[in-house]
Simulated scan of single mutants.
Amino acid sequence: MKSERIFDYVRDVDTALIINGGENQIDKTFFYITGAKSGIFEGSALFIRPDEVKIITSELEEQAARETGYDVIIFKTRDEFNEIIKKIFENHTNIGINYSAVSLEQYKNILKIIPDKEFIDISQSILEARKIKEDDEISKIREAAKIASDSLEDVIPKIREGMTEIELAAEVVYAMMKNGASGESFSTIVAFGKNSSMPHYFPGKTKLKKGDFVLIDYGAVYQRYCSDTTRTMVFGRASEEQKEIYEIVKRAQHESMIKIKENVNGRDIDKIARDIIDSTKYKGRFIHSLGHGVGLDVHDHAALSPSYDFVLKSNMVVTDEPGIYVPDVGGVRIEDDVLVKKDGYEQLTTSTKDLIEL
Rank of each mutant, 00 (worst) to 15 (best):
R160G: 09
S197M: 00
S185H: 09
K108V: 09
I156T: 08
I132T: 11
I189H: 05
Q106L: 14
T229L: 11
M233P: 15
F213N: 04
T206R: 06
M163H: 02
A169D: 02
C226S: 09
Y218P: 02
K108P: 07
E165T: 02
K140M: 04
K207A: 09
V221W: 10
Q223M: 08
K108T: 07
K108R: 12
A148W: 10
C226D: 04
G193R: 09
M177C: 08
Q124P: 07
E167V: 04
I132L: 12
I113S: 05
F186A: 10
E153V: 15
M177K: 13
Y201I: 01
S227M: 03
D150M: 08
K194A: 10
E143L: 05
G180P: 07
K158P: 10
G193K: 09
K207E: 04
I216T: 01
S182C: 13
G204N: 08
I126N: 09
P203V: 01
E165R: 00
L168G: 11
S196V: 00
K194Y: 05
R231M: 07
V221I: 14
D154C: 15
I216E: 04
K205S: 15
G180C: 08
L215G: 01
Q106G: 15
Y174P: 14
N179H: 02
K207D: 01
S185N: 14
P203A: 01
L168Y: 03
K140C: 04
I159T: 12
F213P: 05
R142M: 10
I114F: 00
I156G: 06
M233W: 04
M176F: 06
A191H: 05
A129T: 10
P115T: 08
A129G: 04
E134H: 11
S151A: 09
R130W: 06
Q106W: 08
E161R: 11
I114M: 07
M176W: 06
R160Y: 13
G204E: 03
L208D: 15
I216H: 03
A170N: 15
I114R: 00
S123M: 11
Y218S: 01
N195G: 02
A144D: 15
Q124R: 08
Y218I: 00
L152Q: 04
E118D: 12
T164M: 00
I166C: 08
Y107K: 07
V221H: 13
I114C: 02
E143H: 13
A181M: 10
I159Y: 14
R224I: 00
A191D: 03
K158G: 08
I120R: 03
V190M: 03
K158E: 12
A175I: 11
M176Q: 14
I159P: 07
E153K: 06
